[in-house]
């Protein structure tokens, strides 16, 4: 009798444990699918980028589409002061023609001077000019927008996703290497971050709820940039927004502009990876040759007794 009670208790205990484990496991999977971490943050998921990996390279058409998003939407508020017009035509980027870039630059009025009589003057932009900003300085932007929008030329390298220990170790390894956390983050922030706040969450006026943004308690000053292109049902205001026939979807737009920002932050990525492959091949061959030379020189020293 006593034994049976004990056995029943053990079984009940085991069943409770199992149920608990299942619950936690399912909960864990659910949370992972949703991508929310323990503090309610939406963890950006790894995306497939054409520029990932040893042979990674930018997708020209994607960069050109991303540039359109940047030009029409982002650059209305954001600066990109390290980005010059000429870079848009250089190899490894969107590769617009120089004529296109000259025409684009000329549509902007750039302050220059002083001239011979000591006055500042406006002139049409040149390919060598940095990307002009709609605001004269940080203070002007702050007074108009409530905060200074972050400069976009390095944004993709200045933002990241921290996967934590031990996953970060894998990010440095071949085949797992990952320098795309920045675009992953930007993509998730603009596509998935804007959502209805949880019950009881107070959003102060002039701010928006975003599940992805770090360090500000889910609050962001920027209104959803996709809302400037799409209506509430995700239908584009202008179905011909892309001139290359690519369907205009929130996913596509977020992806394209994230890729463009990665290029803006790392315009030498293609040159770097191409050279890196050559360097590794060269060093690999060099090291193998050295290995055999070393083996030849040391032959006879290791095993046979020395006869000086």
């Amino acid at each position: 009798m006593k034994m049976r009670m004990k056995a029943t208790a053990v079984r009940a205990f085991a069943a409770t444990l199992l149920a608990g484990a299942l619950l936690v496991g399912v909960g864990g999977i659910g949370a992972r699918a949703e991508g929310l971490n323990s503090e309610g943050y939406l963890i950006p998921q790894r995306q497939d980028w054409s520029f990932a990996g040893v042979f990674g390279h930018y997708d020209r058409a994607q960069l050109q589409r991303g540039f359109k998003v940047f030009h029409d939407v982002c650059s209305q508020c954001h600066a990109a002061k390290h980005l010059t017009f000429r870079e848009l035509s250089e190899p490894g980027g969107p590769e617009f023609t120089l004529a296109q870039v000259k025409a684009l630059a000329a549509t902007y009025k750039i302050e220059d001077g002083p001239n011979d009589s000591g006055d500042m003057f406006k002139r049409p932009g040149k390919p060598s000019d940095p990307w002009p900003w709609n605001f004269a300085n940080d203070e002007a932007a702050k007074s108009a927008l409530g905060a200074v929008p972050p400069d976009m030329s390095l944004l993709a390298k200045a933002r990241t996703v921290q996967y934590g220990f031990p996953y970060f170790l894998a990010e440095g390894l071949p085949f797992f290497e990952d320098e795309e956390q920045g675009p992953d983050y930007i993509y998730a922030l603009i596509k998935d971050g804007y959502r209805n706040p949880p019950k009881g969450f107070k959003v102060p006026s002039g701010l928006y709820y975003n599940a992805v943004i770090q360090g500000s308690g889910h609050l962001i000053r920027m209104p959803s940039p996709l809302a400037m292109i799409f209506d509430n049902n995700g239908k584009p205001n202008n179905p011909k927004f892309y001139t290359d026939g690519t369907p205009v979807t929130p996913d596509q737009v977020a992806r394209d502009v994230s890729a463009f920002l990665m290029w803006a932050a790392e315009p030498k990525l293609e040159e770097r990876k191409r050279m890196g492959f050559n360097v590794l091949v060269f060093l690999g061959v060099f090291a193998s040759l050295l290995y055999f030379v070393k083996k030849k020189i040391w032959a006879g020293v290791h095993d046979i007794s020395p006869s000086a």
């Binding site: 990010e171 440095g172 071949p174 290497e177 320098e179 770097r272 492959f277 360097v279 590794l280 060093l283």
Partner: peptide, 10 residues
Amino acid sequence: AWFVFFVPNY
């Protein structure tokens, strides 16, 4: 070289 060329900001 692996880090310089493929994960320079790791």
